[in-house]
Structures are given as C-alpha cells and as structure tokens.
C-alpha cells in the first residue's frame, strides 16, 4: 500500500498496509484542520456502529504536538456526550470502563508489523486503548520506524516506563472451534490516523 499524502514515505505505506491487514482502519491527515475533519470520519467508523454510541463518554490523550487542539470541543461536536482528558479527574478507571471510545497518541509505531507503542505515565494512559469497545490512535508520521526492534532500540538509555504495550490490531480470539472473533476483551474496532502537523 502506498501512502496518498506521502507517497515516498515507505514506512507510512507499510504501516497502513499491516494495520489494515490486521483488521484496523487507517486515515491520513496533514495539518490541524484535516486532522479534526479526519476524526469525524474515524468517529463514523469506530463509534456509530455501536448501539450505545450516544450513551458514553470518550477518554483521550494526545501527543504534545496536538495538545493545542480543543479536543473536548471537537469530540462533543462529533457527538460525544462528554470527553475526558487522561488525568483530568480522579476516577480514570471508571471513565475508561464506561467510555465508548478511547483516543490515544503513541510513543512510536512500527511499519513492518503495523504496530503502535503506548507508554503508561501520569499524562499518558493504557486503559483508553483496552477498556472501551473502540480505540483510535493518532500516529505522527515521523514516529513510524521500520521495525519493532528499531522501536525498542529507541528506548535504551532512558528509564523504561513500568508498563508499556505494543498494539498490533484489535482484540481477537479463535478459541471457539477456531472461529475468529474480534473484540473479546478489548476493542473490536481499532483505527489509526497518521498525521503530519
């Protein structure tokens, strides 16, 4: 798969192909307005099919370069009942449990496996990626490296977070007669917006 916006960036193309192949959806966006507009498309794909779409909040955190966007406003425009930023109030666990969508940034992504890496810290959380029924990850395109091994190498020389994870697709199982079912414990719908500010 070749990237529409960055046709010479092979990492973006490979990441998109692998992420889609694993059952996720990918959108591309360049610049603030395009990112906000793309979130609307992602909302239609990730949230609208959920019969409880209008009943729950959204929980989110984004990388530094997107923090200037008023995400609460954007999400409420799309139909979110309430949008909670990670760390903005005490009971993040309860918010994440009732959320209809979790939105996260990522520390890095790997093209060869279509993966994103998320670290747990006071300002970045893992629950938005696992407790809600849908997860949208915002991937800054320069954070996409070729391989997981390369991403892991980037982490050396600094203290490791006590918890971090690599996501490479939706939650799935084939434990019942070998039938593949999406969304067993974690999100059944996952999407990625690859962006460039």
């Amino acid at each position: 798969m070749t990237s529409t916006l960055w046709p010479t960036d092979t990492n973006v193309g490979e990441f998109s192909w692998r992420w889609t192949n694993a059952g996720g959806m990918v959108w591309e966006a360049r610049g603030r307005e395009a990112i906000i507009k793309t979130v609307e498309q992602a909302w239609d794909y990730l949230v609208i099919p959920n019969p409880k779409a209008s009943s729950g909040p959204v929980i989110y955190w984004v990388n530094l370069e997107l923090q200037h966007i008023d995400w609460r406003h954007v999400l409420q425009q799309h139909g979110s009942v309430k949008a909670w930023e990670w760390g903005s109030q005490g009971d993040m666990r309860n918010v994440a449990t009732t959320a209809i969508l979790g939105i996260t940034g990522c520390a890095w992504a790997a093209a060869a496996t279509g993966s994103v890496a998320l670290y747990a810290s006071d300002i970045t959380g893992l629950w938005p990626s696992i407790l809600p029924p849908a997860h949208l990850v915002l991937v800054e395109r320069h954070r996409i490296v070729s391989t997981v091994a390369e991403g892991l190498r980037q982490m050396t020389g600094q203290p490791l977070p006590p918890l971090f994870k690599i996501v490479s697709g939706p939650s799935m199982t084939a434990d019942i007669e070998g039938t593949l079912i999406i969304g067993v414990h974690g999100p059944g719908r996952v999407g990625a917006i690859v962006y460039d500010v």
């Binding site: 666990r93 279509g114 490791l160 006590p162 918890l163 994870k165 939650s171 974690g186």
Partner: peptide, 22 residues
C-alpha cells in the same frame, strides 16, 4: 502465523507516583 500478536505487554515495575494504572 502473525507478524506480531495484537497485544505485547511489557512490565518493568509497580505503579509509580502520579500514575493511576498498574
């Protein structure tokens, strides 16, 4: 036969101050 499983989880310690997870 997958390049990587859907979730790879790394654990390097208990929850630190300021964190809510772990």
């Amino acid at each position: 036969g997958q390049r990587l499983s859907s979730y790879t989880t790394f654990l390097s310690g208990p929850r630190r101050d300021g964190m809510v997870e772990g």
